[in-house]
């Protein structure tokens, strides 16, 4: 089935089998391997991408369903030129990642969350992260990085 979609601002056309998961389409057809796959049943959150601005599990969407949609993945987050997005920068500064496998899904979860919650409390951050599993960090530095990112982004806004 023919689909046309935009990923990180770039339009792609492809012929896909209906059963192809969006996660596999992004990773293997478009070779955007920054989106990771950890469980393929919608629990771990590693495959989280933005679909028309909303964070979704790309393992629980068929690629055909993304026809006509605007997608954003971790590869599109940094402005380019070696710079990091403020959220990425904060994760680096606060040691918010270890193996880094869950990280892209967490970053993509946080983009809309911080847009809607520019100054979240620790409890709000933890609840927002509760749909993303991390086995390395114990979440502490992820929470700290998120709040640091929020403050960085508030500064940019001002």
């Amino acid at each position: 089935m023919e689909i046309t979609l935009t990923v990180n601002g770039v339009e792609h056309r492809a012929d896909v089998e209906p059963r192809l998961l969006l996660s596999d389409f992004l990773r293997h057809a478009l070779e955007l391997t920054g989106t990771h796959v950890g469980c393929e049943h919608g629990v771990c959150g590693a495959c989280t991408v933005l679909m028309d601005g909303a964070a979704v599990r790309s393992c629980l969407v068929f690629a055909v369903q993304a026809d006509g949609c605007e997608l954003a993945t971790v590869e599109g987050l940094a402005p380019g030129g070696g710079e990091l997005h403020p959220i990425q920068d904060a994760f680096r500064e606060a040691h918010g990642l270890q193996c880094g496998f869950c990280t892209p899904g967490i970053l993509m979860t946080l983009v809309p969350f911080l847009r809607e919650n520019p100054d979240p409390s620790e409890a709000e951050v933890r609840a927002a992260l509760s749909g993303n599993l991390c086995r390395c960090t114990g979440y502490q530095n992820i929470v700290a990085a998120t709040r640091l990112a929020a403050s960085k982004m508030r500064e940019v806004e001002v």
Binding site: R27, H28, E31, L32, T33, G34, T35, H36, V37, T73, V74, E75, L77, A78, L84, Q88, F91, R92, E93, H95, L97, G100, F101, T103, P104, L107
Partner: peptide, 23 residues
């Protein structure tokens, strides 16, 4: 010293290569 990690930029931007990323 608690220096920031050399590997983070790769991991944060999705450029790091994991086994299933090798095509």
């Amino acid at each position: 010293a608690g220096v920031v990690r050399n590997e983070d930029a790769q991991l944060l931007t999705g450029r790091a290569i994991f086994v299933d990323d090798v095509h």
